[in-house]
Computed example of a mutant assay.
Amino acid sequence: MQTMTHENKPGNNRWIATLAGACLAAVALVADAQQPLKVAFVYIGPVGDGGWTYQHDLGRQALEKSLGAKVKTIHVENVPETADAERVIRQLAAGGNDMIFTTSFGYMEPTLKVAKLFPKVHFEHATGYKSAANAVSYEARFYEGAYLLGVIAGKMTKTNTLGFIGSFPIPEVIRNIDAYTLGARSVNPKIKTKVIWVDTWYDPGKERQAAETLIAQGADMLCQNTDSPAAVQVAEEKGVHAFGWDSDMSKYGPHAHLTANTENWGVYYIDEINKQLAGTWTGNRNTRWGIKEGLVVLSPLNPSVPADVVKLFEERKKAIIDGTLLPFAGPLKDNTGAVKVEAGKALLDEQLLSIKWYVEGVDGSIPK
């Protein structure tokens, strides 16, 4: 008669098989947990634009430096706001990326369209206003910095004429023009702002021509909502002043460049990826951070800025941080004289997101 040992009893075999299966599952979970989070970025311009895209890529690099092996990032640059955007975003989603950041206003609809097709992928869109269960929007309260640039411009101008180079006539850009003008007129009511639209985010040639035209029209302070340092370079050549935009552009105009309105996107990217890693990320959000949160950062002031202007600048910045200064607080009129905001009130976020009018002091009308 055959003797059944401990090793070959049927019950023990089942127990061993179950234990082995559990061990394999645990190993798989550990291996999966060790896989880096795959994060993709879509850029409107070249990484070397010296402005908007460059600053976003600095944020991506800060993310990698902060989280190390926990993340693996890729980026695609020079993606136009056309059908190409949807194609690129779809390819990134299909390619196994866990999160995709699309970093220009015109990517909003393509991002939402692709998000519907890939419900397990999380999407983040910069400067938009729409969200979904697996998509959020985020932006900088860049108008806070624009207001402070205006304060400096209003105090230092000799001609009382400011120049602004606009990309596209969308609310994001219009509110920066308005805030810049409001800051200037808060210290110098004689200010007039002239605007030239170039219908592009990045075209150094067009930006240069616009800067030269504005100077010819009397502007001795140049600001922009475009991505290249061309305006700063022109200001340096012509002996007037300018402000950097998105990035510190002082190296392009050491005498002309007074300060720059920049973004530290890294603080936001690190915060969002940490939420994803912790399993606390949620959709249907719209995040707007400003100077207080460290997303909007003003670069060091040029030593040529007078001491009294520096003092005023710092006082106004502190007031924005503590909430006692709201750039779009009433009374406000548009440039036709119509009252838009009554005294004691201020524009709400929803109103700022859809603003389509110039404040008093801006010349001309908004292109249709």
Rank of each mutant, 00 (worst) to 15 (best):
Q35V: 12
E350Q: 10
N284M: 05
S104F: 04
L29G: 08
A126H: 05
A179T: 00
N8M: 11
Y147T: 13
N97S: 12
T336I: 08
K340R: 12
V88W: 01
A211S: 10
H6D: 13
G106K: 06
S247R: 11
M249I: 11
G150K: 15
P300W: 00
K317M: 09
T18C: 04
T200Y: 00
K38A: 05
A25H: 04
A242F: 03
A153F: 12
D308E: 14
I320C: 07
M99L: 13
P300S: 06
N225P: 06
N134E: 09
A153L: 11
L182G: 12
P189N: 06
V47S: 04
E212H: 01
V30E: 11
A33S: 13
Y107T: 01
A22T: 04
N302W: 05
F313E: 00
T262G: 07
P229D: 09
A256N: 06
V30R: 15
D203R: 05
L332A: 10
E263F: 03
D322F: 12
V27R: 02
E237W: 05
V136E: 09
W197N: 01
A132D: 05
F164Y: 00
G330E: 13
T262E: 04
A216P: 08
W201M: 09
F41N: 11
D32L: 15
V39Y: 05
I291A: 04
N302G: 10
S104M: 10
A69E: 10
N13I: 09
G344S: 15
G323F: 13
F41V: 15
K251A: 12
A140I: 02
K158A: 05
V30L: 12
K72L: 02
V234G: 07
V267D: 07
S304K: 02
T324M: 09
E263M: 15
D349C: 10
I74E: 03
K130I: 13
G239E: 04
E236L: 08
D84P: 02
I170E: 09
H75E: 06
I355Y: 01
L37I: 14
M4T: 15
F164L: 03
S104A: 10
L295G: 08
Q224I: 14
S365D: 07
G279A: 00
E86K: 14
H255P: 02
Y252C: 12
H56I: 08
S167D: 04
K317Y: 08
V173H: 07
V240N: 11
N97I: 13
N13P: 04
A184N: 08
C223S: 03
Y107C: 01
G294R: 03
V297S: 06
F101Y: 02
V173P: 02
P229N: 09
E342M: 14
D84G: 05
L37K: 12
W281A: 10
G323P: 13
